[in-house]
Design a binder for these strands. Structure first.
Lengths: 249, 249
DNA sequence: CGCAAGATTGACATAGGTCAACGTGTGTGG
DNA sequence: CCACACACGTTGACCTATGTCAATCTTGCG
């Protein structure tokens, strides 16, 4: 497991932090921020590296500053299921728990803003704003997990793929908004295997369904990872969800 | 939707409440309890009735006092997936959200301890103990949801059934502890259809797998709903989980 | 250039879904 | 007190979506 302290990142002041308004610390006042500023330290992890293994002692919690990481569980015989996708501003670790419950793996290069667990927990007791925000974030994650349960339990392979693509777009849309009428496009941040682990499929099925969607014109591929959606409504029909879904509204 | 105020239940003082030490209010001090006592009202729902429909305006939150309820999501074409099982002390509703996100259905007769949402939210702002406990409970639910994602995405039908039985036993064990060496037994609180909705299977598959487990002596049936486990380790082997699993330890 | 790592595709196997018939048991009304 | 209806459960025959195994293609990189 390789990591290093990011010399450059270490100098970021919380006030300038890119995830300032979305992370656990988003509700903190100036003086609370100052305290966090003193506690925090940055850590960077290269793409492909595992950040923590399930069962490891975990003496820190963190906010994901940049990059993408996955939470996954693996059975003894190797079957694995992704149980969460961590994006910038998401929280890693659980206050009040000593051991990691899941494997956390960096999908791209990742920067974490870490806090040693004990001081963080102490701060949390003194600072209701942090607990409040963490509750809100946890409730959102619970909703996402439950939406995923519907996908895993009841959707077909094709619906699963379409849903994943739609979710990635929805997320992307909230950042670099694109022309409404025009074609949407984005880079898949996941390998076929990672997609399979997320969707409860095999990579072969993922590959076949992507090919099928391409053949039928629902999506276009530019290279293996870059996807173009000529007609978003068409894609959304394929997800099996209620037609609206609140995308881009 | 039929419900009524439980005249008898209405007189329960928080101090005597059966879920006093596990629910959202578990950390509250005497004076905080007094305040809750003033806010709360009881509501009972008969087995089979739906408590709220997904999308409904929801102007209350509640603790489940007795009985069992389910959270589920249904797709337009009728496919449904249970996304949570609510047991006594579990919390219903989400502070800060106006509409219910899931159908909540009473599986058995159910008693709720309700709070109108606005006053409860206000109380939560003033009383960190409630938010803290709710965070803890939400984190536990998130873990449970993620464990269920592994089951839905990667387990075989047989493993799914065995896991469900093991979970019910684990829960039961924490109440009426039974002789360690002796056979464990319990009543299934769910129909085959509800089990299927929980496990992402059809009821036929559930029925077949239960028959198979019976045929092979992993379980015994007394009537349709009462289950006897002659050898717990044997059942746990069938779940596909790590051998220990922390059951009864 | 030539190999890995990722991705695609094909042939085939199978777990679980679907449709349909048949049990079982319990509460209700004649 | 019977019977019969209805909800729940079981079982069978068959089908299909997805998994498995294996060969081949593509592409970026040392």
């Amino acid at each position: 497991m390789s990591f290093q302290t990011a010399a450059a990142a270490a100098s970021i002041k919380c006030g300038d932090c890119p995830i300032r308004h979305r992370a656990v610390c988003s509700r903190c006042e100036t003086d609370e921020l100052r305290e966090l500023d003193g506690l925090k330290y940055y850590r960077t992890i290269e793409a492909g590296q595992t950040i923590v293994w399930s069962g490891d002692e975990m003496d820190f919690v963190a906010s994901l500053v940049s990059g993408i990481a996955t939470l996954s569980q693996t059975m003894e015989d190797g079957r694995t299921q992704m149980v969460g996708l961590l994006l910038p501003s998401d929280f890693v670790g659980r206050p009040g728990r000593a051991e990691a419950a899941y494997d956390v793996t960096a999908t791209t290069d990742v920067t974490l803003c870490c806090f040693r667990k004990k001081p963080f927990e102490a701060l949390m007791m003194r600072t209701p704003h942090i607990g409040q925000r963490l509750l809100e974030m946890t409730l959102d994650e619970l909703d996402a997990a439950r939406e995923w349960m519907l996908l895993l339990g009841r959707k077909t392979a094709r619906e699963k793929i379409a849903t994943l693509l739609a979710i990635i777009i929805r997320r992307d849309a909230s950042l670099h908004l694109q022309a409404d009428g025009g074609a949407l496009e984005f880079d898949l941040p996941l390998t076929r295997e990672a997609m399979a682990d997320y969707l409860g499929l095999t990579l072969e099925t993922v590959s076949r369904q992507i090919s099928a969607l391409k053949r039928e014109g629902v999506i276009e591929l530019r290279g293996k990872r870059h996807i173009v959606i000529p007609d978003l409504d068409r894609l959304i029909e394929e997800t099996g969800d209620d037609s609206d879904g609140g995308v881009l509204t």
